[in-house]
Design a protein around this nucleic acid. Structure first.
Lengths: 159, 159
DNA sequence: GTACCTGCAAATCGTTTGCAGGAAA
DNA sequence: TTTCCTGCAAACGATTTGCAGGTAC
């Protein structure tokens, strides 16, 4: 029978390449392994799409196995750090709400947003990437990132 | 010698199709020709790219020939109306600032944003439009609008 | 004259910051 | 022990809203 008493809080979780990369980038930058920082990393590592600071706060509050609350101020600070290190992609869509998601090389995608209910859906398309890459080379900007958002009505809101 | 005394405020200005379309759409919706509404219409009709509410307020304050100030509250209300009528395209990029620009069929474009100085530059590309149109037909959303933003460093900030 | 339009000021809401105690190294 | 991390509360800035007087029609 397994003995969980040594670390009753942290469930055995599988981490991705992104989590590993983020951890070492944070360590290299001199950051410590604080509780909120680890929780945010863990959470973002397991999301299919972008979350706002408020959504992250709520997710952490209701998280199993132990409800670990984190102050919103800490969450904002940590999101800023992660973005500055290039570990997060920022997404602004909707009413001035900023959302973040893990920036993965192998998980690059864009977004569909339902203008009625606000649902955010990720999608990817190779041809779109190729086209954007070509376009990026002939514009008056040294392009480092790009972002595509398709607005419309999702299936729930269409019916 | 021309007599300007009858209407000393309004300079003789050339209006676009968009202005005409917006005017009649507003009239059809039952809106009156209030001073701020007309000023915002006039201003947006002559912009190369998107403006925020604050930028609009300042532009109206410093506008020739007569400095006509408009309260920010009115500007926000009017921008909401125009957006609801589909006359404006909304653009969110940067620190939670929302910008608007006239939605013209024949002036559809996307944006380059310098992440250092915040400069916004419009661009257009036919192949990109074709690709997005194709992609729009195979995603799980009834797509009505789309938006592409390329992030990077402009020539001023690169040097 | 009526109903809409506008400006003002207060209220909201997302986000940022200052500060003091608690935790990682 | 030293320095960073966190929570709390106040500060901030963009946007929204309630209300009273002014204006289009």
């Amino acid at each position: 029978m397994a003995d969980y008493t040594e670390n009753p809080i942290v469930a055995p979780t599988k981490h991705s390449d992104w989590y590993a990369r983020a951890s070492s980038a944070l360590a290299d930058a001199g950051y410590r392994r604080g509780s909120v920082r680890l929780a945010v990393l863990e959470l973002l590592d397991n999301q299919p799409c972008a979350l706002s600071a408020v959504e992250i706060e709520e997710a952490l509050r209701h998280r199993a196995p132990a409800p670990k609350a984190a102050s919103r101020a800490s969450i904002y600070r940590i999101l800023d750090e992660l973005e500055a290190l290039g570990l997060l992609a920022r997404l602004e869509v909707g009413q001035g709400i900023v959302r973040f998601e893990a920036a993965r090389e192998s998980g690059h995608h864009h977004h569909l947003i339902c203008d009625h209910c606000g649902t955010l859906i990720p999608f990817r398309d190779e041809e779109l990437e190729r086209t954007i890459h070509q376009v990026s080379q002939r514009v008056a900007l040294n392009v480092s990132e790009h972002e595509v958002v398709l607005h419309g009505a999702c299936s729930d809101c269409t019916s």
